[in-house]
C-alpha cells in the first residue's frame, strides 16, 4: 500500500519536473551571472580558478555559512554522543609492523598533499574543503593502521575555532578598511597564476583547510569511539 502511494506521488513529481525542464535544455551556453564571473573574475579577484573566486569572493557569505554548518555538525555530534562516553579501556590488538611502518610513512605525505591542495586552491582545482578532507583521510589511516592513537581534543578544538575566527576577522577587517564592505578583497591582487595572488582568497582557504581537516578528523574520532 505504502509502496503504491509512494510510486504515485513520485510519478506526479516526475511529471511536474519534466514540464519545468523543457525551459532548461541540456548543454546550453552559460547564463548571465556565470558569463560575468568568467569574463571579469580574473580582474576583480585575481584568482585563476574562477570557481574559487565565486566560492570565496562573489559568494563568500555562502561559504561562511557552509563552514558554520560543518561546525554545527561537529558540535552537534559531540553533544549527541557526549553522555555516552565511558572511558573504558578496550583491549586493542596491536597492528603488525609492516602496517604500522606503512602508516607512519604515508601519514606525512598525505598531510603534505592536503596542504598542497588547499594552498593552491586559487590556481588549480581544489581548495580548503577538498584539502581538509584529504587531511582527515590521513587521520583515518592512522586510526585504522596504528590503533590506539588518538588526536588531542584540545588541539582539534583550538584549530576549529581559530579557523572560523580567522575567516570572520578577515571579513571584518574588510569591513573596516576595504571600502566598508564585509568580506571585500582588500589585499593586493598580485600577478595572475602565481602563488601569491588573489588577495585574501589563499589566506581564507588555508584557514578553512585547517578547520575542515580538524573537524572531520574530530567527527571520525567521535564516531570511532562509539563503535
Amino acid at each position: 500500500m505504502r509502496k503504491i502511494i509512494g510510486i504515485i506521488l513520485l510519478i506526479i513529481i516526475c511529471w511536474g519536473i519534466i514540464l519545468a525542464l523543457y525551459k532548461i535544455p541540456f548543454g546550453i551556453p552559460k547564463t548571465k551571472v556565470g558569463e560575468y564571473y568568467i569574463d571579469k573574475g580574473r580582474e576583480e579577484t585575481g584568482a585563476a580558478n574562477v570557481v574559487t573566486s565565486v566560492v570565496l569572493n562573489y559568494r563568500g557569505f555562502d561559504t561562511l555559512g557552509e563552514v558554520t554548518v560543518l561546525f554545527i555538525a561537529a558540535i552537534g555530534l559531540g553533544a549527541a554522543l557526549a553522555t555516552l562516553k565511558k572511558k573504558e579501556k578496550r583491549k586493542i590488538e596491536p597492528s603488525s609492523l609492516i602496517l604500522r611502518t606503512g602508516c607512519r610513512f604515508l601519514f606525512p605525505l598525505i598531510l603534505l598533499f592536503g596542504a598542497y591542495i588547499f594552498i593552491h586552491g586559487h590556481l588549480t582545482p581544489g581548495g580548503g574543503f577538498q584539502g581538509g578532507a584529504i587531511i582527515a583521510s590521513a587521520f583515518i589511516l592512522v586510526y585504522l593502521g596504528c590503533r590506539g592513537r588518538r588526536i588531542s581534543e584540545v588541539s582539534s578544538k583550538t584549530t576549529e575555532s581559530l579557523g572560523g575566527l580567522i575567516f570572520v576577522i578577515i571579513g571584518l577587517v574588510g569591513l573596516a578598511v576595504g571600502g566598508h564592505y564585509f568580506l571585500s578583497n582588500f589585499l593586493p591582487k598580485g600577478e595572475l597564476n602565481t602563488l601569491f595572488s588573489a588577495g585574501i582568497i589563499p589566506i581564507i582557504y588555508i584557514a578553512i583547510g585547517f578547520k575542515v581537516g580538524s573537524e572531520l578528523a574530530g567527527v571520525i574520532d567521535n564516531l570511532m569511539e562509539e563503535s
Partner: peptide
C-alpha cells in the same frame, strides 16, 4: 568554459 556558479553551489 562551463558555468562556475553551480559548481560553487554544489560545493556548499
Amino acid at each position: 568554459m562551463v558555468d562556475p556558479v553551480p559548481q560553487a553551489l554544489v560545493l556548499t
